[in-house]
Design a protein around this nucleic acid. Structure first.
Lengths: 156, 156
DNA sequence: TATTGTTATACTCTATAACTATA
DNA sequence: TATAGTTATAGAGTATAACAATA
């Protein structure tokens, strides 16, 4: 018989609620810019890079190209991105930030950081950085900083 | 002008992907028990407690009571929970784990812990514990007494 | 009248399939 | 034939509204 774990001991619970809380606050902070966190994620892909096709953006984000269409429709209606046919391959649309889009992305980036700072305010700066570092380590899957073999490794 | 942050520096990105990865692995591990993580969440509410009504379970989970109906339909079909009208208030259904349900919950709890252990394997045990502690601190102080409020709750 | 569970319905999100225009 | 973008459609998931039984 296993002993009871309180909800707040369950890592999945903690991660999920931390994710939801931060996402909500980010959406709230971005609302004055008329974008949400998901749209900002797409904009960040476009920022400070060579122009990309819709498909490339979609693949970078891990979403379907049909989903990308609707996302870009919204952003284009807001004047944040522009689509142009690629002269070199007219099947493709090159997606670029407008001037307004650049300003929105910069403002959003500042807001995102502020939200993160506030979110992390209850813990020390060191613990905040440790959180980031630990999460990065957990997500770097095949990378070499794995430790000893675990029960899981044997099952693989 | 704000400087570029790599995706892996964005806390929301890290949290979201950590949540997704852990949830996927948990679902995979629980599959042999014919339950998923969401169902297990509901079962954990029922385990080792006084019997609760459907509404109480739903409120604890922060989901709508109509969603609860479908969730319990599934779990009841699997023989994991049973519903009885409450003799004291026959509008209510008392929800209880069956004997099989108790066994499933215990087995699932063991699996959940194994998955967590594997998930945390890339970092030291100390860092794993720090992660948990930091997340708890962020959720306690960060969002005072909000359990899992939904859009619906706010509209009410 | 209010509450609990239920059913029917709607809405959001995202994917698959099919169509178009290019290659 | 294959690919990029689009459109139409479907599916999962979850909510709101309406209803029956009970309080």
């Amino acid at each position: 018989m296993s002993s009871e774990a309180r909800p707040s001991d369950v890592l999945g619970y903690l991660l999920k609620h931390a994710t939801m809380t931060l996402a909500e606050r980010t959406d709230t902070a971005l609302a004055p810019l008329s974008i949400d966190g998901k749209e900002f994620g797409a904009l960040r892909v476009l920022a400070r890079r060579e122009p990309m096709s819709q498909l490339q953006v979609a693949q970078t984000l891990g979403i379907d190209r049909t989903t990308m269409v609707a996302l870009l429709d919204t952003l284009e209606r807001k004047g944040i991105v522009a689509r142009h046919p690629d002269p070199a391959d007219r099947r493709r649309n090159v997606v670029e930030l407008t001037e307004q889009g650049e300003r929105v992305v910069d403002a959003a980036e500042t807001l995102r950081r502020q939200v993160e700072e506030e979110f992390l305010a209850p813990v020390s700066a060191a613990d905040g950085e440790r959180l980031r570092r630990t999460l990065r380590a957990l997500l770097e899957e095949g990378s070499p900083n794995r430790q000893q073999s675990t029960a899981a490794d044997q099952r693989r």
